[in-house]
C-alpha cells in the first residue's frame, strides 16, 4: 500500500469520526442529509459483498466492516433523530440510483465466460457502488447550499471526504505507473466524484476558512 492510498483511507476514516462526533456531542442531525448517508450505506453494502468470498488483508476486512457498521449506525441515528429538520433534504435520489444501476448493468467488469452468475452479479453491484458513490454527496451538497448556518463540523466532515477522494486519485496515478494497476471504471468515476467536491471546497473556503477567528 502506498502513502497516498493510506492517507486517503485515514481521511475517509476521519470523516466517519467527525460525523459521529457531530451526531453524538451536538445530539442533533441538523444539516446532515439522511439521503446521502443512506446512499453511502448502499454503496458499502454493495461493494463489500466480497467480504464473503475474497480475503485481501486484515486491514481491508476491518475497514470494510467498520465502514458498513458505522454508516448503518449513522443512518439509524439520523433517521430516528426527532430534532432532524429534513425539510431541506429534498434531492430526488431516484435520479441518482436508477441511472447508476442502469449504467452498472452495461459498463462493468463482468467476465461471463469465467466465474458463476453470483460472481458476475457482484461485479455489477461493484460497478453500481462505484457510480453511486461518485454522486452520493449531491443531496448533502444541496443541503449545504440551502442551509444558512451549517455547523463547522459538518463542513470538516465534507472536507475530509474530499481529501480522501483527492488522495485516491494520486494513489491511482502511482499504482498505474509502478504496478500497472488500472480500473478505468473506478478512475473515471473517481475523477467525477472529486470534481463534485471542488464545488464544495469553494463553499468551504468561503464559509469556514474565511470565518475563522484571526
Amino acid at each position: 500500500m502506498n502513502i497516498f492510498r493510506f492517507v486517503g483511507d485515514m481521511s475517509h476514516l476521519a470523516s466517519f469520526f467527525l460525523l459521529l462526533a457531530k451526531l453524538i456531542y451536538t445530539k442533533s442531525s441538523t444539516g446532515v442529509s439522511l439521503k446521502t448517508q443512506a446512499l453511502y450505506l448502499t454503496v458499502f453494502v454493495c461493494r463489500y459483498l466480497d467480504l464473503l468470498v475474497a480475503f485481501v488483508s486484515w486491514y481491508n476486512e476491518l475497514m470494510k466492516i467498520f465502514f458498513i457498521a458505522a454508516s448503518a449506525y449513522i443512518v439509524y441515528v439520523v433517521a430516528t433523530s426527532t430534532r432532524n429538520s429534513n425539510a431541506s433534504d429534498t434531492y430526488r435520489v431516484e435520479f441518482l440510483v436508477i441511472p447508476a444501476l442502469v449504467l452498472a448493468c452495461f459498463v462493468n467488469e463482468t467476465h461471463w465466460s469465467k466465474g458463476g452468475w453470483s460472481l458476475n452479479v457482484m461485479e455489477i453491484l461493484w460497478a453500481f457502488s462505484i457510480y453511486l458513490e461518485a454522486v452520493a454527496v449531491l443531496p448533502q451538497l444541496k443541503m449545504l447550499h440551502q442551509l444558512e448556518d451549517t455547523t463547522n463540523i459538518t463542513m470538516h466532515y465534507m472536507a475530509s471526504l474530499g481529501i480522501y477522494r483527492a488522495f485516491y486519485l494520486l494513489n491511482w496515478v502511482y499504482r498505474l505507473y509502478y504496478e500497472g494497476y488500472w480500473h478505468p471504471i473506478a478512475v473515471v468515476a473517481g475523477i467525477v466524484q472529486t470534481l463534485l467536491y471542488a464545488d464544495f471546497f469553494i463553499l468551504y473556503y468561503q464559509s469556514v476558512l474565511l470565518r475563522l477567528p484571526s
Binding site: 492510498r5 483511507d9 475517509h12 466480497d50 475474497a54 485481501v56 488483508s57 481491508n60 475497514m63 470494510k64 465502514f67 467488469e109 467476465h111 461493484w126 485516491y168 494513489n171 504496478e179 500497472g180 494497476y181 488500472w182 480500473h183 473506478a186
Partner: peptide, 10 residues
C-alpha cells in the same frame, strides 16, 4: 499485471 487486477481498494 495490467488487466483484471484484484480489487484490493476500499
Amino acid at each position: 499485471a495490467s488487466k483484471a487486477a484484484a480489487k484490493d481498494e476500499l
